[in-house]
């Protein structure tokens, strides 16, 4: 239940930001969406077992599923890599995603005539 609400809140905020014009906002939106997916993946492992997946520490019967944790761990680092890259793009190209926007139909594609 809490996982579902958390995912919902993060997706709502992330989608709102991603649809903005300023590239910094878009990047931050992607960060939030990344969080949402990570929470979802972890929740997919089941939220009823919350023990540490460290052998020899705590009760093995309540240890959390380690596989989603491994997925999420790499996903976080990858998201970080992408965030850095997007920020570099913002740095290289300016923060406005629509300044040089090409109008539909201006590109000479289509028609074939």
């Amino acid at each position: 239940m809490t996982a579902a609400v958390a995912v919902g809140v993060l997706v709502a905020g992330g989608v709102y930001l991603v649809l903005q014009r300023n590239l910094v906002r878009v990047v931050l939106g992607f960060v939030l969406l990344g969080h949402a997916v990570n929470v979802l993946v972890l929740a997919a492992g089941g939220m009823d077992r919350r023990g540490l997946p460290l052998i020899g520490q705590g009760d093995p019967a309540t240890a959390a599923d380690p596989l989603p944790q491994a997925f999420v761990l790499t996903a976080i680092v990858i998201t970080f890599g992408i965030t850095v890259y997007l920020l570099a793009l913002a740095r290289a190209g300016g923060a406005d995603t629509e300044r040089d926007a090409v109008e539909p139909g201006d590109d000479g594609v289509g028609g074939g005539r």
Partner: peptide, 18 residues
């Protein structure tokens, strides 16, 4: 869109996990 997507995601999470 954000609210709609949030709802969809929350419902899906609720339906498909745990």
């Amino acid at each position: 869109l954000g609210v709609a997507a949030g709802f969809a995601a929350a419902l899906a999470t609720f339906a498909l996990t745990g």
